[in-house]
Design a protein around this nucleic acid. Structure first.
Length: 322
DNA sequence: ACCTGTCAAGTCTGG
DNA sequence: CCAGACTTGACAGGT
């Protein structure tokens, strides 16, 4: 089995390269010259996109082909103060440059809209802003010139006291989305609400691939084992032209088991990989969610290199031999 | 240069 | 019905 590792949004190695610089709504509102304030937002956004390009170059230098963009590339986008502002066309060149670079180097990139994007909501206005948020993420990927393999990963959402009804609402709302948005969505199991099995059932109903978060499953297993679920989860990726993706992280502490630790334990990844290999999975992409970001990736590669049965292929991918 | 409090979102819990 | 917790990186304002 061939495994590629990736990380999320920012680097702990590259300095002064935040892809998430922002401005508060309060300070935006305080600027008397609205035109100037909007230009400032656009400068911040352009800076975020440029830093993202710097991160992609860093990734290239370290053979990292799996990366999740920050969902805060454009500050205050979607805020009610900026309802008539559409910065995506303004930033077309920056987006295109990013997408071209990612394509040129075979990178698999994605977004993960914040937890405030909830399709299971019963509230009309929350649904509307969630749909708008998904549209914006889709438009950014389109502006990069990336096809449907560049995904937007989301959770099913809240349960509102009735998980079945919430799940049905999610499915209904999902099916009302534009095709272009729907085709990019992947669903991730949650650490509090929808378990892996519940998320999987919804994934199968709506035809969206499922991203298994192993840590979330450990915290919220719902009586299931990964061993029994993985073949079905892997099957949701059939026909996608990209390997299944999982999220991997280690618990922060016993006191805070839901939190993310600085690094990722090799043993835990290895245990999962053996399960996946047994189910016949040949390629897998593993997104690391660790506080130390790319440093955690480098450390994990180091740890994996010392394990028998693992052959490092480059700085960020390896083969697990049967 | 550094520290502390605040921010932005939606849901859930406790009062 | 409302305040606070949750989460996280970064702002904003103070020293």
């Amino acid at each position: 089995m061939i495994v590629r590792l990736g990380y999320v949004a920012m680097s702990t190695v590259v300095e002064n390269a935040s892809p998430s610089r922002t401005m508060t709504a309060t300070s935006f509102a305080k600027i008397a010259d609205r035109e100037a304030a909007v230009r400032k937002l656009e400068r911040l956004a352009a800076e975020n996109l440029h830093n993202t390009l710097r991160l992609l170059r860093h990734n290239r230098a370290h053979d990292i082909q799996l990366y999740r963009f920050s969902s805060r590339l454009i500050p205050l986008i979607g805020h009610e103060l900026l309802a008539d502002w559409d910065p995506i066309p303004t930033l077309a060149d920056e987006f295109r440059t990013l997408g071209d670079y990612a394509k040129e180097h075979g990178m698999r990139v994605s977004f993960h809209p914040d937890h405030f994007t909830v399709l299971s909501t019963p509230r009309e206005e929350v649904l509307r802003s969630s749909v708008e948020d998904l549209r914006r993420h889709t438009r950014m990927l389109e502006a990069m010139g990336l096809d449907d393999r560049a995904k937007c990963n989301i959770h099913v959402g809240g349960t509102y006291g009735d998980k079945n009804k919430a799940g049905e609402r999610f499915i209904r709302h999902f099916q009302q989305l534009d095709d272009a948005v729907r085709r990019r969505i992947t669903l991730e199991n949650d650490d509090k609400t929808f378990t892996a099995l519940e998320t999987l059932a919804i994934s199968e109903r709506v035809g969206a691939p499922m991203v298994l978060d192993v840590h979330h499953h450990d915290v919220n297993p719902g009586g299931e084992t990964i061993f029994s679920l993985w073949p079905r989860i892997a099957a949701t990726w059939t026909g996608q032209d990209i390997p299944p993706k999982i999220h991997m992280s280690s618990p922060k502490s016993e006191k805070d088991p839901r939190g993310h630790a600085d690094y990722v334990e090799a043993d835990k990844l290895l245990a999962f990989l053996r399960t996946a290999a047994e189910a016949g999975t040949e390629r897998l992409d593993v997104m690391l969610e660790a506080k130390m970001k790319d440093s955690a990736l480098f450390k994990l590669m180091e740890d994996l290199g010392a394990i028998e049965g693992i052959a490092l292929l480059d700085q960020s991918s390896f083969e697990l031999r049967a």
